[in-house]
């Protein structure tokens, strides 16, 4: 059985619920390292949540960011990842 992890999502626009404060990012890449779903990408010298649609809202990126460069909020209007059978 392949562990090709994919998630279900509620319908609707989630909004930019994860943002980077660009002047604070030091490009260390911890966010990308601990991200299970590949949300983060290095653009020039800093990391950005380019693939936010793949986010499962675990919050690992926010927790490991020593530079305090990540704003980790909530998807809008009850949208975002949807877990079932848990």
């Amino acid at each position: 059985m392949p562990a090709d992890v994919t998630f279900h999502y509620y319908e609707g626009e989630r909004g930019e619920f994860i943002q980077v404060i660009e002047e604070r990012c030091i490009g260390c890449g911890q966010c990308a390292k601990f991200c299970t779903t590949g949300v983060w990408e290095k653009i020039d010298k800093i990391y950005k949540p380019i693939h936010l649609k793949k986010c499962a809202e675990c919050g690992a990126c926010w927790n490991v960011c020593d530079a305090d460069a990540i704003i980790f909020g909530e998807p809008r209007g009850g949208t975002g990842v949807k877990f079932t059978h848990g």
């Binding site: 059985m1 992890v5 994919t6 998630f7 279900h8 299970t36 779903t37 499962a56 675990c58 919050g59 690992a60 927790n63 990842v81 877990f83 079932t84 059978h85 848990g86």
Partner: peptide, 11 residues
């Protein structure tokens, strides 16, 4: 014979 119905991720 099984199939993955759903994945979860948590801290």
């Amino acid at each position: 014979g099984g199939r993955v119905e759903s994945w979860g991720l948590h801290l």
